[in-house]
Design a protein around this nucleic acid. Structure first.
Lengths: 263, 263
DNA sequence: CAGTGGTCTAGACCACCAC
DNA sequence: TGGTGGTCTAGACCACTGC
């Protein structure tokens, strides 16, 4: 009888965790729940302009706690799918599904290697150099003037069509043996798979620019056709900058790169 | 003796909440903590490339729980100030303070009213019209073809210098009495203060465009000088779109509008 | 007043890292 | 093995909304 009582006292969440252990590679519960709710929104189970079920109800349905449901909904809110109002409920945004944003992958510069199959991309190296950084590069990469950097200019085509020009500075200390060969494919493939570097994020600034000589020569840019330039600093998970670059895009290839939801 | 024991059993967090009640207008605790930590980063109390104290330590310092500290750190992480690594710690990004991102205010189109004092902005209304929406506008604003919209084209100067041209569509149902007078100042001032509309967020797309006739005429744009166009759908807190617009910026005025941190 | 989302707690278990 | 961040719980109190 005594043992029986003790057994009943084991908390439910312990049993839950043991029975349906979240594996190493599996997503967090709040992530899975967010995905399910997102699918329901896309399938119009929850329709634009209507409210989601309240936290309590969702918590019961997914057999979890309110804070976990809250976190899932916060994710959807940051993606621009729903908006929460204290006292009123969480509304689904009315938006054409074709307009729902696509993520811009971190640390992939133009993101070409992410958006297109490797075989469709063609790289041409215009410059590959090592030298000491000027003041601006020192500041952007937070390095001293005696710490050398690679300077790389690459020109990339998609399906034979001119797409982007990248102008990149990277400190040599994090990748002492970078070669022209590494650079001829996806630099980030090399940095991630070979050097096992891990990326924290990227700070990006976007502007329109007047085509210069390189642009006209390589992008086959019509005179007066504007280019979109993305300037970025990419950071590693230890907080240090690993790249400062400017990437010039022909306008028709940039649409997926520049969609954001702002709260 | 019995009463004494009961008294000790009152949970600490209850006492804490009663003693230092978070007021109606005051920020959430995790927000205040994030601000304190951000200030320490800016003051180099926590330096770029170094780790923050661990969650436990911070929780003790701020007399709060670990999840609250975690939420504060997540905020800083999404702003691009720190990056967290399981097993290793939370690192401060090495970045020049001048580069730290500025927020782009929601629902303010170009954000001019936010960035500049009202007195420095000059508005000229080029078009103010009511008509039925074409298919694209129906889709962007998620309305039926019989629901009329305002079409507004405005040209704005800062300190006498041409800055932006806005081309805006708004459903009349949410603002039946919009007049040319409301539009001559900040539209959002009117929508927020008079109509008490509340905004959830904005979905934005950015691209470079070739100057058209309006642009050349009003922005005094040099031939071939590119413009940055921000296309956006703005949403209310009930999930309905309230604006679809395209805003063309002269490049030199856009720098603060287009800075983002991506994880 | 009931119902909603927003916040916070105290503690637990986990995965991952470095030693 | 000890320390880190990541996740989750069960429950609590709050502010805000709308009846």
């Amino acid at each position: 009888m005594y043992l029986h009582l003790i057994f009943l006292v084991i908390p439910f969440h312990f049993l839950y965790n043991v029975l349906s252990r979240r594996g190493a590679d599996s997503m967090a519960l709040y992530n899975e729940i967010a995905d399910v709710i997102e699918k329901r929104i896309i399938d119009s189970v929850y329709q634009g302009g209507c409210t989601l079920p309240d936290h309590e109800t969702l918590a019961k349905e997914f057999k979890t706690s309110r804070p976990t449901i809250k976190k899932a909904i916060d994710l959807l809110s940051s993606k621009g799918l729903v908006t929460s109002n204290r006292g009123k409920g969480t509304y689904v945004l009315k938006i054409d599904h074709a307009d729902i944003q696509r993520a811009f992958p971190v640390g992939m510069q133009s993101g070409l290697s992410f958006l297109y199959d490797e075989s469709r991309i063609e790289n041409k190296i215009i410059k590959f150099d090592i030298h000491f950084p000027d003041e601006k590069i020192q500041r952007k990469l937070q390095i001293a003037r005696h710490e050398a950097v690679y300077e790389i200019i690459r020109f990339r085509k998609i399906d034979g069509e001119p797409a982007v020009i990248e102008h990149t500075f990277m400190p040599i200390k994090q990748m002492p043996n970078l070669s022209k060969r590494n650079v001829s494919g996806s630099i980030y493939d090399y940095l991630m798979k070979e050097l096992k570097l891990e990326f924290a994020g990227a700070l990006r600034t976007i502007h329109a620019v007047i085509p210069g000589e390189y642009d006209k020569e390589f992008l086959k840019n019509e005179a007066g056709d504007p280019l979109l330039e993305i300037e970025q600093i990419v950071f590693l998970t230890d907080g240090s900058p690993v790249e400062y670059s400017k990437t010039r895009h022909r306008n028709d290839y940039t649409i997926y790169d520049t969609k954001f939801y702002h709260r």
